Lab assay of single mutants.
Amino acid sequence: RTRTSFTAEQLYRLEMEFQRCQYVVGRERTELARQLNLSETQVKVWFQNRRTKQKK
């Protein structure tokens, strides 16, 4: 599997969503992935990694 390189715009949007809600599921995840031109899996994993980073 190749590592995803997020654009600055994608990271900004993901961070904004994370500040709003640390868990994104269902339709929200589908819509966010579509808007950012990413897969739902990429969005899901980004949120998982971001929550892990916050715990440290």
Rank of each mutant, 00 (worst) to 15 (best):
E9I: 04
T2P: 10
L14D: 01
S5D: 15
L14W: 02
A33T: 03
K44C: 11
E17T: 06
V24K: 05
Q42Y: 13
W46P: 03
L38E: 01
Q54V: 12
K44L: 09
Q35Y: 05
T30F: 03
V24W: 05
V24C: 14
Q48E: 08
T52A: 10
R27G: 12
R3L: 14
Y12L: 11
Q19G: 10
Q48V: 10
S39L: 03
T52I: 05
E9L: 04
K44Y: 07
V25Y: 05
R50F: 04
F18Y: 10
R3M: 15
T7C: 06
Q48L: 11
R27T: 13
Q22V: 06
Q35C: 11
Y12G: 13
Q42I: 13
N49S: 07
Y12M: 14
T52K: 14
N49F: 03
T52R: 07
G26S: 09
L32G: 00
F47D: 02
Y23H: 13
V45Q: 11
R3W: 13
C21T: 12
Q54H: 09
C21F: 08
Q42R: 08
F18H: 00
E17A: 10
N37R: 10
W46V: 03
T2K: 08
Q54I: 08
V45Y: 11
C21L: 05
F6Y: 10
K55S: 11
N37F: 08
A33G: 05
Q48I: 07
K56P: 14
Q22L: 04
T4F: 05
R51L: 10
A33P: 00
V43N: 02
L32S: 00
V25M: 05
T41S: 13
Q35G: 08
E28I: 02
N49C: 07
S5Y: 12
T2Q: 14
T52S: 11
R27Q: 13
R1S: 12
V45A: 13
T2E: 12
Q42W: 05
L32I: 04
Q54G: 13
E17Y: 08
E28G: 05
E28V: 04
F6Q: 05
T52N: 12
L36E: 00
K44V: 12
Y23C: 09
V25F: 11
K56E: 14
Q22S: 11
Y12K: 12
T4H: 04
V45L: 14
A8R: 06
Q10M: 06
V43E: 02
R13Y: 06
M16I: 06
K53L: 15
Y12T: 13
T2L: 05
C21Y: 05
E17C: 08
R51F: 08
Y23K: 13
M16L: 12
E9H: 04
K55L: 14
G26Q: 07
A8Y: 09
E31V: 06
R3F: 15
S39G: 05
Q22E: 13
Q54S: 10
R27W: 09
E28M: 04
S39R: 04
